[in-house]
Design a protein around this nucleic acid. Structure first.
Lengths: 197, 197
DNA sequence: AGGCATCTTGTACTACCGTACAAGTTCATG
DNA sequence: CATGAACTTGTACGGTAGTACAAGATGCCT
C-alpha cells in the first residue's frame, strides 16, 4: 500500500482521442440534438475526461463542427454504396425505395442528416456541409435517374422525413411507384396500371 | 421627489401574457432551436420579466409545448389558405409551386415545421403534433391532387427543405413541372415535351 | 539516460440555467 | 371602500454549462 501511487493515465494516442470524440459527438447529436450536446455529454460518451474535449477542440462549436464533418464523411460512404446498388439494380425505382426504407429504419444517420439540415438553416457556416450532401445525393440520383434527379431527391427526402417524424415506416410500394411515375417519359407507351377506381 | 414611489406594474391581462409568451417561444425556436430556447430568452423576447414565464408555464417543457401548440395552429391557418388557393387556381401545379416558393422564402414558419419534425423524431410526446400537421397537409393535397397527394407532399417537403438548407430559393418552374408529371395519369395522351437530346 | 514538446487529467472559475418564492399590485366582489 | 384572490415582479438558490489552466505522465530525440 504505497502512498506514491501514480496517476493512472492511458497511453498517448491523439488520433484515437479525436476519433472517439467525433464519434461521441455524432452519437450525442443523433440522441439529443445539437442544441443539447455539451462538452460533458460528449466526454462521458467517449469515456474520456472533460479536459480532453477542449484540448482537441477549443470551443464547443469546433467540437460540433468536427462531428458534423465526420457525419458528412459517413453520408459520402452511404452515397457511394447507394450508387453501386442503383447501378446494379434491375429496377432502380424499386431499389431506391428499398434504400429509403433501410435509411429511415436505421434512424441514426438519417436523424443526423436532418439535424444538419436544421442547423444549416440557422448557421451559415454549416451551409457548405449541407450543400455538399445534397450535391452528392443529386449526383448519385442523376446517374440513375437522369434529369429527374431533382424530383426523385425531393421525394426521397420528403418520404424519409415523413417516416422519421411519424414513426411509420416508408411505404416501399408507394414510393417505388411514385419514382416510376416520375421517371416515365412521355413517349413511353407502356400503359400505367390503373389504380382501382 | 417622494421616497415611496410604488413599483410600476403593467395592468392585469393574463391572455395578453400568454399570447406574448407563446409568440416569443415561437420566435426563439425558429431562431435558435428548441434545444437553446430558455426561460430567459423567451422572457426577453416577450418583453416580460422572468417570473412571468414560470407563472404561466410551470416548467420549460410546458413553455415549449405551448409554443409548438401555437405553431400548429399557424400551420392549420396556412393550410386552409393553401386549400383555398389550390381550389381556385387554374393550374394547381403552378399554384403549388408558388406556395412552396413563398413558404420557403418566409423562413420562420417553415423552420418551425422542421424544428418540430426534428424534435418529434426524438420526443414521442411531440409525435401527435407532427402527425397532425402532415395529416392536414395530406388532406389539402388530396383535395387538389387526388391519389397523388403522398407523392406531391413528399416533393413539396423535400423541395422546401432543400431550399431552406441551401439558401437557394425554390425553382418554381421545375417544381411545377414535377408536380404536373406526377399527376399526369397513364392514359393521358398529350405528349410530353421532349428535353433537348 | 535525460530533456522537452506533447499529451492526459483533475479542478476551478464565471456565467447562465430552471425553478422557487415572497412581496407588492390590481381589481372584481361584497 | 374593504377584502382577498389573482396577477406582476424581483430576487435567490442549487445545479450545470463553457472554458481556462496547472500539474503530472509520456515517449521521441539526441
Amino acid at each position: 500500500m504505497s502512498a506514491d501511487q501514480r496517476r493512472v493515465q492511458r497511453p498517448r494516442d491523439p488520433q484515437a482521442r479525436r476519433d472517439a470524440l467525433t464519434a461521441a459527438v455524432i452519437e450525442s447529436i443523433a440522441d439529443v440534438g445539437i442544441g443539447r450536446t455539451t462538452h460533458r455529454s460528449v466526454a462521458t460518451r467517449a469515456g474520456l475526461p472533460l479536459g480532453a474535449t477542449t484540448y482537441y477542440f477549443p470551443t464547443l462549436d469546433d467540437l460540433v463542427e468536427a462531428g458534423l464533418r465526420r457525419a458528412a464523411e459517413i453520408f459520402d460512404r452511404d452515397l457511394t454504396s447507394w450508387a453501386e446498388r442503383l447501378a446494379a439494380a434491375a429496377d432502380p425505382a424499386t431499389e431506391l425505395a428499398a434504400i429509403a426504407a433501410e435509411y429511415a429504419a436505421d434512424a441514426v444517420p438519417a436523424r443526423l442528416a436532418y439535424e444538419l439540415s436544421a442547423a444549416a438553416m440557422r448557421d451559415e457556416r454549416l451551409r457548405p456541409l449541407a450543400h455538399r450532401r445534397l450535391g452528392g445525393l443529386r449526383e448519385v440520383l442523376e446517374a440513375a435517374f437522369g434529369r429527374c434527379a431533382y424530383a426523385v431527391g425531393a421525394v426521397l427526402d420528403g418520404a424519409v422525413l415523413q417516416a422519421l417524424t411519424t414513426g411509420v415506416p416508408v411505404d416501399r410500394e408507394a414510393l417505388a411507384s411514385v419514382v416510376r411515375r416520375l421517371t416515365r417519359t412521355g413517349d413511353d407507351r407502356e400503359p400505367l396500371r390503373r389504380d382501382r377506381a
